[in-house]
Design a protein around this nucleic acid. Structure first.
Length: 497
DNA sequence: ATTCCACAGGAAACGCTGGAGT
DNA sequence: ACTCCAGCGTTTCCTGTGGAAT
């Protein structure tokens, strides 16, 4: 155990008057067969008053029961989908909205309601959700759908078989029971059972790879058409699917209705990109976009409501000081009204407060959380940069570290060239490096402005807009950049010229 | 007013990869 | 197994340009 762990014992003394019995109990258990003065690794963290009541509700994966400020959109969807409960085909729906505007949450909410209502009234209706960012090819989408329905049908058949078997047993001892069934004889039941068993056997699930696409399509088609029902297919991030594998999938799905005999399908597409339909075949476009619902970004007030709702469940009473929620809302509203971001901010602020063993979350924690999230983002972006971009960025950092501010393209390129030779990487042309710098600019890692220096030409003035040491650390952790000895000689050379 | 620096950034073409069609 | 094609990162070649210096 390090000093850091034993040191907070006086902290423990400070806190102890507030401790409730739960904590005391817990401590006793933990220390049961341990020396009393040695604080365990988790004890400090457990000993403080917990701030969270239920952290899960702040995670993006959580679907709330109530979506404030989305009543219109939800009602709209419900009005369209209610057709499914009448056994009719609902219009296809396209949902637009930027990230964190509640599209997915609303759609999932509606579909859950739809499914439960359909069970209540015994109307066969299924909703299948597919995230196209994960399932991003036609094959995978169809395979996933096919397997879902095959599974579904197997259950359906199993149920029927069970019913029939009991009926068969009953009928063999007492034939009069057949009177009010569809069967005239035990033989008829046997025939039906056999038929179903054959069906059951044919329901072979689709492998994740290997089949021709049309075979997968046919399997899916038959699986859907096996029983009478309305099927709603929800395609989240549908723009990703179109981007990666074209509109064939959507075309196939949207024309299915004309060939299905027993069932009906309806598609709900969810998209971040408002103009992704531009790339679609006009036929697909018109059939898919029968109904369009737009989710506008939340404003600061709406975000505040949302946070308030969730905070009540997520945090212990009085764990938040008054300015926390408005501040989170304000920060997130600046970022295009992204509710996910707002919740993230609130959760991170809570976690930071917890780590500090503070009694509650205050404004300071929110600001720290904002910084942390931003840093995490930068670290992630920098870490996943291509090697060449990393080299360019590294050149900029080296210059900046040596006190050169507002670097220009030529200087960066010189350092970059030497770096490439050092680690034996391909040297790109200056033209290309110019573009890489512009990309870094767009990612918000550097700030590049074109300025004219009169006689001394026209160039980009580049300055770093992220914390220098952290960024450098991330770059150095790259296996290829790791073995750069020192940048000093390169930068020094610049002054010699 | 003219010159001229040190690039910006457009256009086209090239080489490579990986998927679709045959 | 084969070709064909599209998309991407890149190179080559190029024209354009704001303003200090002349």
């Amino acid at each position: 155990m390090t000093d850091e762990n034993t040191q907070p014992t006086d902290d423990g003394v400070d806190v102890s008057p507030d401790r409730n019995f739960d904590n005391v109990d817990l401590d006793d258990v933990v220390f049961d067969d341990d020396e009393d003065d040695d604080q365990g690794l988790f004890d400090d963290l457990l000993s403080g008053e917990p701030i969270f009541e239920n952290k899960e509700v702040l995670r993006p994966s959580y679907t709330p029961h109530e979506l404030p400020h989305r009543k219109d959109q939800i009602n709209n969807m419900a009005t369209i989908l209610v057709a499914a409960l009448r056994g009719e085909t609902p219009s296809n729906i396209l949902i637009y909205g930027k990230t964190g505007t509640g599209k997915t949450a609303s759609a999932k909410f509606v579909s859950k309601e739809l499914e439960s209502t359909s069970q209540k009234y015994d109307v066969p209706c299924n909703v299948e959700y597919i995230n196209c960012e994960v399932t991003d090819t036609q094959y995978r989408v169809l395979a996933q759908l096919a397997n879902k329905f095959i599974e579904n049908n197997q259950e359906f058949v199993d149920d029927r078989l069970e019913e029939l078997t009991t009926l068969r047993e009953g009928a063999s001892s007492d034939p009069s029971r057949l009177a009010d069934t569809a069967f005239e004889s035990t033989e008829a039941i046997d025939a039906r059972i056999e038929e179903l068993e054959d069906d059951r056997e044919e329901m072979e699930s689709v492998p994740m790879t290997g089949w021709p696409t049309d075979r997968v399509y046919n399997t899916f088609f038959e699986a859907v058409d096996y029983e009478e029902r309305v099927v709603v297919i929800m395609l989240d991030e549908i723009d990703k699917l179109v981007e990666k594998s074209g509109d064939d999938t959507l075309y196939n799905l949207s024309r299915m209705n004309s060939e299905l005999e027993n069932s009906r399908v309806s598609i709900i597409g969810i998209s971040n990109d408002l103009k992704f339909t531009d790339f679609l075949d006009p036929r697909v476009k018109s059939s898919l976009g029968e109904e369009e619902i737009v989710f506008p970004p939340y404003d600061a007030n709406q975000l505040r409501d949302i946070l308030q709702h969730r905070a009540e469940v997520a945090f212990k009473a009085d764990a938040l000081s008054d300015d926390v929620i408005p501040l989170c809302a304000a920060f997130a509203a600046q970022e295009h009204g992204d509710a996910r971001r707002a919740l993230d901010l609130l959760r991170t602020a809570g976690e930071l407060a917890e780590r500090d063993q503070a009694e509650g979350v205050n404004e300071k924690h929110v600001r720290k959380a904002q910084e942390k999230i931003e840093l995490d983002r930068v670290v992630e972006v920098v870490r996943t940069l291509p090697t060449q971009s990393k080299l360019v960025l590294f050149s900029i950092i080296s210059l900046e570290k040596n006190g050169v501010h507002n670097v220009n393209t030529g200087e960066v390129y010189n350092i970059y060239k030497r770096l490439c030779e050092e680690i034996d990487a391909d040297v790109l042309t200056q033209r290309r490096v110019t573009d890489l710098i512009s990309e870094l600019d767009m990612l918000g890692i550097v700030n590049a402005v074109v300025v004219s220096k009169g006689r001394y030409g026209r160039t980009k003035e580049i300055s770093l807009s992220v914390p220098i040491d952290e960024t450098e650390a991330v770059l150095m952790s790259d296996s290829r950049l790791g073995d750069i000895e020192s940048v000093q000689p390169f930068v020094q050379a610049r002054f010699d010229n």
